[in-house]
Amino acid sequence: MDTWRQIIADDEKSWVLFEHGTCVVLTTPGDDLAAQAVSVLRDSGPVHPGTPAADFGTVPLETTPGWVITSHHPDVLTYVSPEEIAQDGDNTPLAAGLYGRSKRDQDAHSLTVIHVEDNRR
């Protein structure tokens, strides 16, 4: 959670973290944050080759080692640490992006919420 708190430096944004490291930022939070995030990830998380759902971007982090992997949905992000991809010997942004996309797909299928950061005021 500390890594995501550093990544999402806005203490007024609510977000939900899933089992494999995917985070859904809730720009307009509703009553049930977990259910709202599950709905977003169910619809926008699965990877479908040849579609925008397979696209990703890789953003290197300045405050902590690793990358944030973006997706076609602007509020769905996945964190990848250097240790996660170092075991394959390929510590590049492309390797991080592919790994992060895979984590997003896993989370979109399991939909297991592990943390809800409720910053509604």
Rank of each mutant, 00 (worst) to 15 (best):
T22Y: 13
A54Q: 07
E84K: 06
E62Y: 01
E19D: 07
H72P: 03
T64S: 01
H73W: 05
A108L: 04
I8W: 08
G57W: 06
G66N: 10
Q106Y: 05
D105L: 10
G21W: 10
A35P: 00
V25E: 11
S81G: 15
F56M: 03
T51E: 09
T22S: 12
V24Q: 05
D105E: 04
E83H: 11
T92N: 06
L26N: 04
P65H: 03
C23K: 00
Q6L: 12
W15I: 00
P65D: 11
D118P: 05
V68S: 02
M1C: 02
H48Q: 15
P49N: 04
T92P: 01
H20M: 10
H109F: 13
A95S: 15
G50T: 10
D118A: 10
D2A: 07
E117Y: 00
S71A: 02
I69R: 07
V38E: 15
R121F: 11
P65F: 04
T58L: 01
R120E: 11
A53H: 10
V76C: 05
N91T: 14
Y79A: 10
A86Q: 12
T70M: 01
W4C: 01
T78V: 12
L26M: 04
Y79D: 09
G21S: 06
E62I: 10
V40G: 13
K13I: 07
M1D: 04
I114Y: 07
D55F: 12
T28N: 12
T92S: 15
R104F: 11
S110F: 01
D11R: 13
Y99V: 04
P93D: 09
A9P: 00
H73L: 01
K103N: 07
V116T: 15
L98C: 15
V59K: 08
